[in-house]
Design a protein around this nucleic acid. Structure first.
Lengths: 189, 189
DNA sequence: CGATTCTTTGAAAACAGTCAATCTGTGTGG
DNA sequence: CCACACAGATTGACTGTTTTCAAAGAATCG
């Protein structure tokens, strides 16, 4: 599991073996079965989580009991609840494995130390946040600009394999449309 | 204009007079009249921009010539096109003053130096990005969860004074609904 | 195989968008 | 100072899209 992480780090920046040892010392390896939770609403999130294998989804349940998928997080992406992480408040989201998954957790305090010890890691994580910001911004823009059909088209471009990995109704939820509507959109292609 | 900026910085962190001098040396003060552009689509954005006074809006024009407002940026907020800033690609957005405004521009290279010279500034800008990320995430969540009416309610909570400062049709555009629909939503309260 | 989850389909209702006309307020120039 | 132009807001009628509800048909998993 750590090998995947090391390969990822070296694709994004360059980390020496000694530096990676520092990471290894604090990294927690966790295996999750499908439908197992990484985080439940109300808990406090204190990690940085890197998905080595599998697929996580972040979702929220509204007053009417309806689920809304905020994010899909496949292998080689980071997940977590940034709001809870920063503020120390209870999480408002659930993060659940939707496939059997392998995740590396780095406790918050250790991340802070590592970012000082390994400046390149710090830089990488900053870049990551910037890019996440931009992709969220693109998503907002897509939401206010496009029709349901166009949004689905965009989604397929950005996540080409996701439609094979998660059920349709979760994609609909991610896009903010009803599953029936998405089904009909697909039918007419 | 720089006084406003200094006050802002000291509300977010603490910057000594000597440190602020470093900022002053590179800061560019710019006054903009209503309808004047800070950035036009196609240009390359190379600054960090802090709004001391007035109101900026970031928008995009789609294929059909329709404007879509991505962001309102009143005094004491930062604006810019992060995508263009990072990648060096031409901006896809326009940033326009919607009131007579005063903006401080710090050129990209100078920001980089300042962030090294003034660690607290660096920290502050990181926190800022994190918080911007979270608020965008909340906006996405609101987009996929709520009806037009609920979204408008949320908007009023987050930007209580904005409805006095910008025309209704721009708020509609920001929310991704038609001006007529927003007008009707308001009428039935 | 049986149970569950997911997807599709149909019909009706709710909702939002478009187009066009009218109304309102503001600011400008004669 | 008034008349006019202009931008913005509202309203009505219509159209089109999306949701909802219900039921039936696939697909998947234990």
């Amino acid at each position: 599991m750590l090998e995947v992480f090391k390969r990822y780090l070296n694709s994004k920046t360059s980390i020496s073996d000694e530096e990676f040892e520092l990471i290894r010392e604090v990294a927690i390896e966790r295996k999750l079965r499908k439908r197992q939770y990484l985080l439940q609403e109300g808990d406090i999130w204190k990690y940085d989580a890197f998905v080595c294998k599998g697929l996580m989804r972040t979702y929220k349940v509204d007053d009417k009991g309806q689920e809304h998928v905020l994010q899909f997080c496949p292998e080689n992406w980071w997940t977590g609840d940034r709001q809870s992480y920063i503020s120390g408040e209870p999480a408002r989201y659930n993060i659940e494995a939707y496939e059997d998954s392998e995740v590396i957790l780095i406790p918050k305090q250790d991340t802070a130390k590592l970012r000082i010890q390994i400046p390149k890691l710090n830089e990488m994580m900053y870049d990551l946040l910037e890019r996440s910001f931009i992709s969220l911004q693109n998503r907002v823009q897509s939401n206010i600009t496009h029709t349901a059909e166009e949004k689905y088209g965009q989604f397929l471009k950005i996540y080409p394999d996701m439609s094979n990995r998660v059920p349709l109704h979760m994609i609909a939820s991610f896009l903010g449309i009803s599953p029936e509507t998405l089904s009909r959109i697909r039918a007419k292609k």
